[in-house]
Design a binder for these strands. Structure first.
Length: 578
RNA sequence: GCGCCCGUAGCUCAACCGGAUAGAGCAUCGGCCUUCUAAGCCGGUGGUUGCAGGUUCAAGUCCUGCCGGGCGUGCCA
């Protein structure tokens, strides 16, 4: 089923091309910039008029006259200003589409025309440390995008490219091995990954003898020494348990099956070097083996190398990523490979992508996309730290969010039994934290602030959840759940605005899938919830006479569908009451 | 030095391949609970979109140059 924007683009596009004779003219249909202009507007006529040498308003008039609105969606199309075409949709067409969506809720977001294989690399924590607030971005953005692609019918492979093979593991193993027998105490110690890492790092920096053992441990580990592998495995397992607890609490879809750890590629790295060499791309420079993609330059215009093997023979992040590109290209046969990774690694990915193309490790048909996001900053404009200099642990942030939500729900709704209040607080607190991140443009650097992160008013998850609970309460009280009939009339402007907004969900989802900006979905859902709130405040429902009541209940149900499906794509579940 | 990102209301952020009078939230001021959940709704205050040019019917958006900030820039990831 076409959405409104697609239909208008098609119909207006055909008329425009017919009138101006330009085969590639686009009507450029967008939502109306002001409600008094109508529902949608076409901005493309003026550009087309410029190209074919006609007067914009005259061409716009011709386009309106040539419209072939076969499905009868358009109530009016008017030329305005310098050559805009303002469109108002027909109320009966809107009602018909709304009722269709009610009868078949999945149809609210139709599948994409072309099914693709999409790899979403996200979260990717370093297993040497505990997850901190910085990890929420990639984790939650990647999860949202994965859900969007899945919902559109694409075949999604989530990958969690955890860092489990770097040099710091030698340090940790050396520290771990020094602890010896008492496994109970050790487990307790490992539960505080951050503290364990800090202790190991301190020893590494202050005890030369320890540092030497740490380096030796890396060599032992990477050469496959069983004892060192076992120690490593123990550490990794504990760290992964910690990650999974966070993922479950965040309701993020990543599981152990999605692991695509660095260590997995250990045996492929020599082959990557060989392949680059065979293709004549490898050059030795200052003792390291490098590839020089022509488009990168360093100081003084010197060619900038992508080092793939260190002078001591060790491999690098780039090498591993090349192996990962190959897997995604040739084994997973991906159409799109997304890397939801901090923007600071943007040069790294440009380089990896360039080398992969040069070496034929990524076919032209594979779209490699770095879905970059900004850094989390403190109030002082520098990367966020607590007083002790550590990053805030993600687990602590979530605890705080849930605690604050519990205080609030207890104050608002003391009558609820404690178990339910706790469940509500868990959902509301976690949702607030996720939404605070998802609702910001991912490219912006992000100022971490407890107050912003844990706000429950305004453009926040609780606002959206509250709209849902109001709808659910209505449906509970209505007895028949509003399922008796469909929408029959649009008496108040708030009804029409809500219906139109609800029907626009698929338009937003398409953009999110294309551009990978979850905040666009958040913006939309906030507007949708606002449209419902205004409808709710101005239109009596349960007390209205029968026909109006049923029609409004059906509209409320449609709003709930759109809200719930949209929130679902953000990875936020709804509540019966709060 | 070079490269990437950014600069919008007191604060945090929007603004859909350039579109009509730049929008929200927080804060602040005022109104709305004997009717469907006030985590809400309605209204007010608040802007030379960092500065200066340019491109065109139209610029927060594109181009150039400054100013300010963040990040990156050969053997970490």
């Amino acid at each position: 089923m076409e959405n409104c924007k697609e239909y208008l683009s098609r119909v207006l596009g055909a008329a425009l091309r017919g009138c101006c004779g330009l085969a590639d003219a686009e009507p450029n249909v967008i939502g109306a910039s002001r409600p008094e202009f109508g529902d949608y507007q076409a901005n493309g006529v003026m550009a087309a008029a410029g190209r074919c040498g006609r007067k914009p308003r005259e061409l716009a008039t011709a386009v309106v006259a040539a419209l072939a609105d076969r499905e009868g969606w358009i109530a009016s199309a008017e030329v305005a200003g310098p050559g805009f075409i303002n469109i108002r949709l027909d109320d009966r067409a809107l009602l018909a589409r709304g009722n269709e969506a009610l009868a078949q809720p999945r149809a609210l977001i139709p599948p994409a025309r072309k099914r693709q294989k999409v790899v979403v690399d996200h979260s990717s924590p370093n297993l040497a440390k505990e997850m901190h607030v910085g990890h929420i971005r990639g984790t939650v953005i990647g999860d949202c995008l994965s859900r969007v692609f899945e919902r559109l019918g694409h075949e999604v492979t989530r990958q969690n490219h955890v860092g489990d093979w770097g040099t710091q593991f030698g340090m940790l193993i050396a520290h771990l091995r020094g602890r010896g027998g008492d496994s109970g105490a050790l487990e307790a110690e490992l539960a505080d990954l951050e503290g364990f890492y800090r202790d190991a790092k301190n020893r590494f920096d202050s005890e030369p003898e320890f540092a030497a053992r740490a380096r030796a441990s890396v060599v032992k580990l990477q050469s496959g020494d069983p004892e060192y592998l076992a120690a490593w495995r123990r550490f990794i397992d504990e760290s992964l348990r910690h990650c999974q607890r966070i993922y479950q609490r965040l309701d993020v879809g990543l599981t152990l099956a999605d692991l695509d750890a660095e260590s997995r590629y250990n045996d492929d790295l020599a082959g990557i070097i060989r392949e680059l060499d065979e293709k004549g791309l490898l050059r030795e420079s200052e003792g390291a083996r490098c590839v020089f993609p022509p488009e990168f330059h360093g100081k003084d215009g010197e060619p900038l190398p992508v080092i793939v093997q260190k002078s001591d023979g060790g491999y690098l992040y780039s090498t591993t990523d090349l192996a990962a590109v190959k897997l995604r290209a040739f084994e997973l046969k991906a159409d799109r490979s997304l890397y939801v990774v901090d923007a600071r690694q943007s040069l790294h990915f440009q380089q990896v992508f360039a080398v992969a193309r040069m070496a034929g490790m990524a076919p032209e048909t594979l779209s490699l996309e770095h879905i970059a996001y900004g850094t989390i900053m403190g109030q002082d404009g520098k990367p966020y730290k607590t007083r002790t200099g550590d990053a805030v642990k993600l687990a602590d942030l979530l605890d705080e969010a849930v605690a604050r939500a519990l205080t609030l729900v207890t104050g608002k709704n003391p009558g609820l039994e404690e178990g339910e209040r706790r469940r509500i607080a868990e959902t509301v607190g976690i949702a607030a934290v996720k939404y605070a991140d998802l609702s910001k443009n991912r490219m912006s650097d992000y100022v971490f602030d407890w107050a912003t992160m844990l706000s429950f008013e305004g453009n926040t998850a609780p606002y959206l959840l509250y709209a849902c609970t109001r709808i659910k309460s209505l449906l509970r009280r209505s007895g028949d759940g509003g399922r008796s009939g469909g929408m029959a009339r649009l008496a108040a402007p708030e009804e029409r605005a809500l219906l139109l907004k609800a029907l626009q969900l698929p338009e937003v989802v398409d953009v999110v899938a294309r551009e990978c900006y979850p905040n666009l979905l958040c913006n939309y859902l906030f507007e949708l919830a606002g449209a419902f709130m205004r409808f709710y405040e101005s239109c009596p429902i349960l007390t209205a006479e029968a026909e109006t009541r049923d029609s409004r209940l059906a509209l409320a149900r449609l709003a709930e569908e759109a809200l719930e499906q949209g929130l679902g794509l953000l990875g936020i579940g709804t509540l019966e009451r709060m």
